[in-house]
């Protein structure tokens, strides 16, 4: 257990929930729902940026030296070689998708009430942020499992 990993996971999950909130507000928008969606998207950007910072700090200062070699010597080395490698790079998409969502909400404000196409565009991107963020959590579970399996295999 590591505080930085806890912060990374919590901030990432809350960020995902913020974009789920955006998605729900956009399903049947009015002025107050769109205002809330803009606030949720802005909060989502901040939470995902925090997840990026704390996860990145942990990855650079701890993971490479203390965790990666153990996973790679354990029974499921692919937890690092495939899952961590994919996660660390695909994660980088998320902050930009979050900024795009907020930017479109800010640009078109109340036009989403009338224009279904605009609504669909933001629904697609915010839904993608939610799915991608939860996929990151799933990959985090696989990486933790790889670490635990390596430790258990050395104890037993």
């Amino acid at each position: 257990m590591h505080t930085l990993i806890g912060l990374h996971a919590v901030l990432g999950e809350v960020g995902a929930l913020a974009f789920l909130w955006v998605f729900v507000e956009l399903l049947n928008p009015n002025e107050s729902r769109l205002r809330r969606a803009r606030i949720a998207a802005l909060l989502g950007i901040l939470f995902l940026a925090g997840a990026w910072f704390f996860g990145g700090f942990y990855y650079v200062t701890e993971y490479g030296a203390a965790v990666k070699p153990i996973i790679k010597s354990g029974p499921i080395p692919w937890a690092h070689s495939i899952i961590t490698e994919t996660k660390e790079h695909v994660f980088l998409f998320l902050p930009f998708l979050a900024i795009l969502t907020w930017g479109l909400l800010k640009r078109y404000q109340n036009e989403f009430i009338q224009k279904r196409n605009f609504r669909m565009a933001v629904l697609l991107i915010s839904g993608l942020v939610v799915l991608l963020a939860f996929a990151m959590a799933g990959m985090g579970f696989l990486i933790s499992s790889g670490f635990r399996a390596a430790l258990e295999s050395k104890i037993i």
Binding site: L97, L100, Y108, N117, F118, M120, A121, L124, I125
Partner: peptide, 8 residues
């Protein structure tokens, strides 16, 4: 913008 979102 829907086309743009689909490309994203």
């Amino acid at each position: 913008i829907l086309r743009g979102a689909l490309i994203v």
